Simulated scan of single mutants.
Amino acid sequence: MAVLNPYLNFNGNTEDAFNFYKSVFGGEFFMLMRIGDVKDVPGFDKLSEADKSKIMHISLPIGKSDVLMGTDIVESMGQQKVSGNNFSIAIGTESKDEADKLFNGLSAGGNVAMPMGDTFWGAYYGMFTDKFGIQWMISYDTQNVPANNR
């Protein structure tokens, strides 16, 4: 069964926000990846040092099965944070088939920003805004799955 997690977007203060959330919820970050840590994304090498220091992905486990995740908006790449796009619902699936089923069903009548496909970070991933204006991210983590089960 799929797992739902909130994914928050910030204007350059993701790290501050997540340190605050960590102080309230406790625990340790599961992942903290800066934009400058990524080498395989076209155009990232042209970003300013300030943009490279921004958070590409951060995750903080909360409770037994929930994860709060976030990222910084990179305005130099044409991204903007406006009311309504500062969060997404991230769904982690148990298979590619489940990912495709949820993606195709939820994106019907909406706007696909990134079709389902393999990513440089090792996931099968896609994102879209549904016909009601809600942003979704669907992901199947292929890195933690034996090759014969992918």
Rank of each mutant, 00 (worst) to 15 (best):
G126N: 08
G78S: 08
G126M: 10
S95M: 02
Q80V: 08
D130W: 01
M137T: 11
D72K: 13
G84C: 06
Q80F: 04
I91P: 01
N85A: 07
T93V: 08
S83I: 09
T119C: 07
M127K: 12
I138F: 05
W136L: 07
A108E: 15
Q143F: 05
G92R: 02
F103L: 10
Q79K: 08
V145T: 12
G105P: 00
F103V: 10
D130L: 03
K131A: 06
F128K: 10
F120P: 06
M116C: 10
D118F: 00
G70N: 09
D97F: 01
M127E: 15
N104D: 15
L102A: 05
F103T: 03
S95G: 07
G78L: 03
D97Q: 14
V112W: 00
M116T: 07
F132H: 08
A123V: 05
Y140G: 05
S76N: 13
M137Q: 15
E94T: 11
I73H: 04
T119G: 08
G109L: 10
K96P: 06
D130C: 05
Y124E: 13
W121I: 11
F132A: 07
M77H: 12
W121P: 13
T142Q: 15
K131I: 06
S139F: 01
S83A: 11
V112K: 02
K101G: 01
V145E: 09
I73P: 01
G92K: 02
G84W: 08
K81W: 00
F87D: 04
Y124P: 14
S88N: 12
I138N: 02
D97S: 14
M116I: 15
A90Q: 06
A108W: 00
D97V: 11
K131M: 04
G117M: 05
S76V: 10
Q135C: 02
I134A: 09
V82I: 14
G78W: 11
D130R: 01
I73A: 13
D97N: 13
Q143H: 09
K131Y: 03
N104T: 12
N144Q: 15
S107M: 08
